[in-house]
Nucleic acid binder design. Structure first.
Lengths: 342, 342
DNA sequence: TCAGGCCATGTAAACCTTTACATACGAATG
DNA sequence: CATTCGTATGTAAAGGTTTACATGGCCTGA
């Protein structure tokens, strides 16, 4: 139970100064061959590992990235996370996870890691930036903070963003239903406090109006992106006197919940009602029927955003207010059927 | 773009020493009211936040936990993660994520954070501990490391573990099929390098043999826990001349892939083949038919393991080699049908 | 032979806290 | 009144690195 070896122990054994040991480790080419060997020998002998806390303190940098996720348990985010992890890891950065549960207090708490030296940058998957940080970024007095938003954009875009064109994607999905001959189309929307909800609603409305269809409050069913809310939407549909031709769901979870509950009550998809989703999660393909949906490049979201963040950190956090829009595409499966005109 | 305020700035403004500032922050009750107010005022004025790196260095502790996950993208793990996060957060610990992809090099790299002061403890969700750490733990010369394995146990249990009795759970699932009148039962197993695979295979075999059924290599279909391998298994079944009565799948993903592919080829579950899964992921309920499966308390896995780890850290890492076995239960849905005796 | 330059290394300060120990002061006790 | 005690604060060391600057030796070119 001896104390951990420090760089000083290594230096003593190798017969050099601590500075040389540090150099032998980080910039091996500036020390002589013999010294490098001596140092490596001493490192092996002592089992030395660099104390990261000391290093972080001295370098004023943590080599860590804080990732704010509204819900770790959600597949959608975890796939973005996987992309983030991939590039973070190859850049020697550790990722810290902050599960915010949409709570501004928790968001603030985790973002403080940027200020207190626990993290060098932050990735926002939660579509929200606490107001104290909005001020901090807008006030030019302070050093700009390296923050990038992913998938869910902030209301006023004050940090770089990586995502897709949700309105256009929703328009594409809706237009697809229209082209398949559907007219009475409902949109199962997400929660209103989410920006994606509004973008997708706008896309839906656009497509409908372009096709000469009227959109009213009755065109929307409230949801919250969960399977359960998809089930609830189905119950609502089942209770109504008139059925729509098709439902465009703001995400796959809801679409799957909806289809499952419709099936349980004998309503057939797509024969009675066509359904289209959004996200293309893994279970969209195995749903019955296979769910037609909009695919977004989630790993690419993670990878690109992490790259941008790394650049930002390198440059000292100069916020370029970039927006990187990645493509989406519609995946045809079996949940939408062609319907003869009216 | 001024420099960040340090405790010294606060001390100067408040007219006290840095020691007093530190005390005012961490042990407010030992300083006088007036001093505390002065310090708080100075903190507000300067916008001071504690530098965590300096604190970590001085205290020789990181207030962070490294969590090793084989696959972030997997729902199964992310729900455990959510449990971990919950208690970590309330204990003031940050969680660091190490995505290992089952690569021992990456496992080692991330576990090094325990030694280099980046993390105070580690949670293993990957069922494996690199040999260098096995030695480190077995050799009593070193200070024991606070490590807990979750869900997937290590081969020789050298760290505390939290999980369920997989063999008994598999036995329960298989027995359920037997009780429902099925005789020709196959097991779609997981990858052989995973300990859960073996535990669940053993449970399957046990149940079968107790019921007087013979288990042969032909009783197993190879899988790897992925949806795709469930689909592949279905293809294999479809190509065979004889169909089993029922399939016990080692996890829900495979069961869902299997059912989906069977359905696509006109084989009806449960009328032609009954299927039972393992894990009770969210999509088990929405699958068609609803998937009968074994539920494990995944959030509880996360919470309990984190509690144990925190205790371990508190006690200075004394490995008690505890094993905490949490209950499972069978959830009946529609994917298993009663079949008349042969 | 000497000035200049390069290369490998050493010295010591800096990064920002926490905390053991010392101090000073007022109150309580004898 | 002298002593003891407790309370609030200050002093300074320690935690383990990195790195600017200094040093010394050797080589090169004139």
């Amino acid at each position: 139970m001896q104390k951990r070896a420090t760089i000083e122990d290594v230096a003593r054994i190798a017969g050099v100064s601590t500075a040389t040991v540090s150099r032998a480790i980080h910039t091996p080419d500036v020390v002589s061959d013999s010294t490098r060997k001596a140092v490596n020998g001493a490192i092996d002998e002592t089992g030395f590992t660099l104390n990261q806390a000391a290093r972080n303190l001295r370098q004023q940098r943590a080599n860590a990235i804080m990732v704010l996720v509204p819900d770790i348990g959600n597949t959608f985010f975890s796939e973005i996370l996987a992309g983030i992890e991939r590039v973070a890891s190859s850049a020697g950065q550790t990722i810290l996870i902050g599960h915010t549960a949409k709570d501004p207090l928790r968001e603030e708490k985790y973002l403080n890691s940027l200020i207190n030296g626990q993290a060098d940058g932050a990735l926002l998957l939660n579509g929200h930036l606490p107001s104290s940080f909005v001020h901090r970024i807008k006030g030019t007095s302070q050093k700009p903070l390296p923050i990038v938003s992913v998938s869910e954009a902030l209301e006023d875009q004050i940090v770089p963003h990586v995502g897709t064109d949700n309105a256009r994607a929703a328009e594409t999905a809706t237009t697809y239903l229209l082209e398949k001959g559907h007219r009475h189309i409902l949109h199962l929307r997400g929660p209103l406090d989410n920006i994606l909800t509004h973008q997708r609603m706008a896309g839906f409305q656009n497509a409908m109006e372009k096709a000469g269809q009227i959109v009213s409050p009755a065109s929307y069913i409230a949801g919250d992106f969960s399977i359960e809310s998809g089930i609830a939407a189905a119950d609502q549909l089942l209770a109504a006197t008139e059925h729509p031709d098709a439902v465009f769901c703001a995400n796959d979870e809801m679409a799957i919940g909806l289809m499952s509950q419709l099936a349980a009550h004998g309503v057939k998809v797509p024969q009675h009602i066509s359904v289209i989703g959004f996200d293309d999660i893994a279970f969209a393909a195995t749903a019955s029927p296979g769910l037609t949906t909009i695919a977004q490049p989630r790993s690419a979201f993670g990878e690109r955003s992490m790259h941008i963040l790394l650049d930002l950190i390198q440059q000292g956090g100069v916020a370029t207010r970039t927006e990187e829009i990645l493509g989406f595409h519609l995946i045809e499966r079996a949940s939408v059927e062609t319907r003869g005109r009216d």
